[in-house]
């Protein structure tokens, strides 16, 4: 039987269905955002200023189309949102979308570094533990993972600051350091100061799913290592590295990767927390500042953008999973 991945009709229908579902969810999120935006506090007062006369308010209402029926306003909101236009920040009076996009690179750099750290450490330790589950060293690693699960991210961050920035004074406690701008992308990867500023936040953010990755890898490896084809590989006299990493780990990693892809909301949530502790100039930090200042256009833009990213990633993971696994049913 030919089990190579193929683009069949069932597959295309599946993809179309997942995309439609994604759009429906996105519309639902936008509707909720719109209702909150429109009805939590009167936008006319916010736009015209607290001391505007009744006539001035009426003018603003007309000018911004706030006197039109609900569905027309909502359609306009969607049309604008599709073009990345979410209105201006109440505080800084510049387009909210621009404010967030400007901080996008900082968040992406922090998040990718964190994922890298947690994958290398989590998967590495998971493999190590799975090979000799009852060795003393590995029992210590498992006990450590319990501690890791029980330590909230914000506490990890503060303790790291206490140890490495306040007492040892080897790493900076906050900020992003010097950055270099390439095109529209401001990067901290290229300067020494940028890298030293990245270490503590990246470790903090990487810790939140370290234990989960470790446990998933360990469970997957222990299952895969008992399979016949692994015994065959050992029997053939393949080098241990090849058996462990090429034959076993590749198969044990599928649930690990799926889990990471499907729980992307967690990464975004924990980046908000990490950015706040380290005053990292990213999107999450901006979100919290906007929450304190009740800057609704920025909050709404953030939510829409986060929803778009999470949903796209989910759909990509689902499709890849279905594509790579011939056994899956498209339901």
């Amino acid at each position: 039987m030919d089990l190579r991945p193929r683009l069949t009709l069932a597959m295309i229908i599946y993809i179309a269905r997942r995309l439609t579902q994604g759009v429906v969810v996105l519309l639902a999120v936008s509707l909720i955002c719109f209702i909150i935006f429109r009805y939590a506090g009167d936008p006319v007062v916010t736009l015209a200023g607290r001391y505007a006369t009744l006539q001035e308010r009426e003018m603003v209402r007309k000018a911004f189309g706030l006197d039109r029926p609900f569905y027309i306003q909502y359609t306009r909101f969607i049309a604008n949102a599709a073009q990345g236009n979410f209105g201006k920040s109440f505080v800084s009076r510049v387009p909210a979308f621009g404010l967030i996009i400007e901080r996008f690179p900082a968040t992406v750099e922090l998040a990718t570094s964190a994922i890298f750290i947690s994958f290398v450490l989590g998967v590495g330790l998971g493999v190590l533990v799975s090979l000799k589950p009852y060795a003393l060293r590995n029992r210590f690693i498992m006990a450590g993972s319990l501690f890791n699960i029980s330590m909230p991210t914000f506490l990890t961050g503060i303790l790291l600051i206490m140890v490495f920035a306040v007492y040892l004074k080897v790493l900076p406690p906050f900020g992003r350091g010097e950055t270099v701008t390439i095109g529209f992308w401001r990067t901290g990867f290229l300067t020494w100061s940028g890298i030293t500023h990245l270490i503590l936040p990246a470790f903090t953010l990487g810790m939140y799913q370290l234990a989960v990755l470790l446990r998933l890898t360990r469970a997957g490896m222990r299952e895969v290592l008992t399979e016949e084809y692994i015994k065959t590989a050992w029997a053939k006299g393949l080098p241990p590295m090849k058996v462990i990493f090429k034959h076993a780990l590749r198969n044990a990693l599928i649930p690990v990767v799926t889990m990471t892809g499907l729980q992307f909301g967690e990464l975004i949530a924990f980046s908000i927390i990490t950015e706040t502790i380290f005053q990292w100039p990213g999107m999450g930090n901006l979100l919290l500042t906007s929450i304190y200042e009740s800057d609704q256009p920025v909050i709404v833009t953030y939510i829409m953008l986060a929803a778009l990213i999470i949903l796209s990633l989910n759909i990509i993971v689902d499709i890849l999973y279905a594509y790579l696994n011939p056994k899956i049913r498209y339901d």
């Binding site: 499907l262 729980q263 992307f264 909301g265 967690e266 975004i268 949530a269 924990f270 908000i272 986060a306 929803a307 999470i310 949903l311 989910n314």
Partner: peptide
């Protein structure tokens, strides 16, 4: 689940 409890609560 994909939006996560933490993000929704914040």
């Amino acid at each position: 689940f994909s939006f996560s409890t933490t993000l929704m609560a914040i």
